[in-house]
Amino acid sequence: MKTSFTLNGQAASLDLDPRTTLLDALREQLSLKGSKKGCDHGQCGACTVLVNGRRINACLSLAVTHEGDEITTVEGLGTSETLHPVQAAFLEHDAFQCGYCTPGQICSTIGMLKEAADGWASLATADLTADTVLSDEEIRERMSGNLCRCSAYPQILAAIRSAGGLA
């Protein structure tokens, strides 16, 4: 099935078996291996990408459903010379050990900071009608969909705090 979307700012057209997940299309057909397959069941967040600016699990989304969407993967965030501020913050704060979850953590962070900037509440928000303040508790709750088996959580938290201008 013919499917076209914008991938990291470039037009992409694919002929897909409808069973192909967005994650498999990115990794196996478009050779973008940054988005990782951890659990393949929406439980780990390693496959997190941005679709129309919002973070989703690419492993649970069929690629054919993304006709016309704007998709951003970790490859589309910055270059080796000019890192995205969230990438720079992860480096600065040593927010990884093995690095497998990192692309998902970074894409998720960018999506999460946008959600917070848009005033979305979380379960850690005591007053649902108040302005969003990204406390450590808020960041932990909002990032709970991204697991890190090396348990680099304190550094990830520090990186996000820094990237969000909160440090």
């Binding site: 989703i56 959600e115 979305w120």
Partner: peptide, 27 residues
């Protein structure tokens, strides 16, 4: 995220925010 839901139906907003993860709730 809807301000009307948060103001008038806080139990619903809390319930939804209790479920899954940010990525899953976006889909």
């Amino acid at each position: 995220a809807d301000l009307r839901v948060r103001a008038r139906y806080p139990a619903l907003a809390q319930a939804i925010l209790s479920g899954a993860s940010g990525q899953l709730r976006n889909k």
